[in-house]
Design a protein around this nucleic acid. Structure first.
Lengths: 115, 115
DNA sequence: ATTAGTGCAAATCGTTTGCACCCAG
DNA sequence: CTGGGTGCAAACGATTTGCACTAAT
């Protein structure tokens, strides 16, 4: 299942994956897809995106955590870290007595192809 | 309905609101809550948060768009803009031929009270 | 023989929709 | 009379769960 996710540009929902797999003749069940996706997401290999009522997943390295999401086609591009975000985070957290664990920057817009 | 949202520290789901309102004797229907929340969110007065399977909303000014979310109690604190984020955004977007519309920074962690 | 993992079908739960009703203009 | 907004109940769709079955140790 993981192999199907690697190399994809846009997130896929459990139901989409199921349909695709079924089309290739696989007898895999929807349940298994859900369980696999949840496990992989919990392990940090996938990122979850809310996409029109359903949850879609995308393979993501652990290092880059910033996304440019096209609201038209759903394409997701990764971006470099924001310079200075760590300092900002440390400062703001200290101010509020908050212990940060992970952060996520998501930019919504329209990709070049959809403009 | 809006008045109930203003001043809250943490997001509330439609169902929670409904329960609370019913408890005060209101005869409001769940449908109305959903419609009101969607309208307010579309108008930019509320921000939507995914919280354990359901969608919760929180009143948010239009200027500050960064959030510190406690994963234990759901408390949401607002933060100042990241210095330099606009420059970063412009640069990254230009690189990828992407037209940004809005961005969102969400930091997950644990608040002081929950530590 | 035991166990982890699977698929199916039914149950669950948040959300949306269809529709009849009521109040204000 | 007319229209917008409301509540109720049914419909919907994504996700989860119960359970029997299979394959591998």
């Amino acid at each position: 299942v993981l192999q199907l996710l690697v190399g994809r540009e846009r997130p896929v929902s459990a139901q989409q994956l199921h349909t695709e797999l079924r089309a290739t003749g696989s007898r895999i069940g929807l349940t298994t897809i859900y369980r696999a996706l949840q496990a992989l997401a919990a392990a940090g290999l996938l990122h979850a995106f809310g996409w029109e009522g359903e949850t879609a997943y995308r393979f993501c390295g652990q290092d880059l955590h910033h996304h440019l999401v096209c609201r038209v086609c759903g394409l997701v591009a990764e971006g470099p870290p924001i310079p200075g975000i760590e300092d900002w985070l440390a400062e703001v957290s200290a101010e509020r007595d908050f212990t940060p664990e992970r952060h996520r920057v998501e930019v919504r817009g329209v990709c070049g192809a959809c403009t």
